[in-house]
């Protein structure tokens, strides 16, 4: 197997597994709440239904509204194909480092917010305003935890960071623990999960992400929903990559890739299960408590930085 083919497998895998991951979470949540749930395949069925449906668009929707689903989808997919999931060194992983990856997702968000404003409903503007505000507040925490990670690896390239973690002997790193907690908190916020936003709500006053895409229908909506699912899987893979890359293969041979695939599925499923448990046991935060949550994430990542300097370099 060449590394290019693994690259393609990996990207397609992220794309195809994303709805399954979303289905997995909702099934876990259903079981935790003593319901049967709609099954793991439900998001796939939803997408298929949406793709078949007709697109209805407001009279004065501009090209921004029309092309946003494609921009959001491709930017997210591009980001997803950069993240190594199975193979440590894929051809595209050099295209963008972690910072560029975050920026690609920011590009998607920018257009999504613009599309929210395009129709001129109060909901769209509200969603755009909230989404941009909260994601802006999440940014420093995100960067700070990347900073902590890059301190020991001396790099922001995912491949180098993963190799560094794989090659260094096992040790307890308080700084990494802090960075991971912060990163998970930010991932929850970025993906609009509980306690920041509820992906299943359509209650006007509390929604953020859904408010921006209210006016979408048909295949456009399908693309946006799919992009959101890919983003969730992308963040899970990123966290797995950065903090527990064990099992990822350096050579593109069949056994290595197969083992990596199995382990990746186990690790991601574990992470998603934890997310489901948290979502079940927590209530959504009041809107103006979100900044406090995000500044908490920043403080934790900053503590990670300080403890790196105090405890890990000082010796």
């Amino acid at each position: 197997m060449s590394s290019a083919s693994v690259q393609i497998i990996q990207a397609v895998m992220l794309l195809l597994f994303a709805p399954l991951a979303a289905g997995f979470i909702s099934t876990c949540k259903a079981r935790l709440q003593n319901r049967r749930g709609a099954g793991v395949l439900q998001p796939w069925r939803n997408l298929r239904k949406l793709f078949k449906k007709e697109v209805v668009m407001a009279h004065h929707a501009s090209w921004v509204f029309r092309f946003t689903p494609y921009i959001v989808f491709t930017a997210t997919l591009m980001a997803a194909s950069v993240v190594p999931a199975l193979l440590v060194d894929t051809p595209l992983s050099l295209t963008a480092d972690v910072i560029a990856l975050v920026a690609l997702l920011a590009l998607a968000r920018f257009f999504l917010a613009l599309a929210g404003m395009d129709i001129g409903t109060a909901f769209g503007g509200m969603g755009a305003s909230r989404e941009m505000t909260f994601s802006a507040l999440a940014e420093p925490a995100m960067l700070m935890s990347i900073f902590v990670l890059s301190l020991s690896a001396h790099s922001t390239n995912l491949t180098t960071m993963i190799t560094h973690t794989l090659n260094s002997p096992f040790a307890l790193h308080p700084s990494l623990a802090f960075a991971m907690v912060a990163m998970v908190m930010i991932a929850v916020a970025e993906n609009g999960r509980i306690p920041i936003d509820n992906p299943t709500t359509h209650l006007e006053l509390t929604m953020i992400h859904e408010a921006m895409i209210l006016e979408y229908s048909g295949r456009h909506l399908a693309l946006l929903e799919w992009a959101a699912m890919v983003k969730l899987l992308l963040f899970s893979t990123l966290i797995v990559d950065l903090f527990m890359p064990w099992g990822m293969t350096a050579q593109a041979d069949l056994t290595g890739v197969a083992i990596a695939l199995g382990l990746w599925m186990v690790k991601v499923a574990g992470l998603l299960f934890v997310l489901a448990v948290f979502e079940t046991s927590m209530a959504k935060l009041r809107l103006f408590e979100v900044p406090e949550y995000l500044s908490g994430a920043f403080v934790i990542s900053f503590l990670g930085l300080l403890s790196y300097y105090m405890l890990e370099v000082g010796a």
Binding site: S62, V64, L114, M117, G120, S129, M132, T133, E139
Partner: peptide, 17 residues
């Protein structure tokens, strides 16, 4: 990130809607 927020506002309010 706040600049992005601000320019969503600018473009959204001036050119969209």
């Amino acid at each position: 990130a706040l600049a992005a927020t601000c320019f969503v506002k600018v473009f959204g309010v001036v050119f969209l809607g």
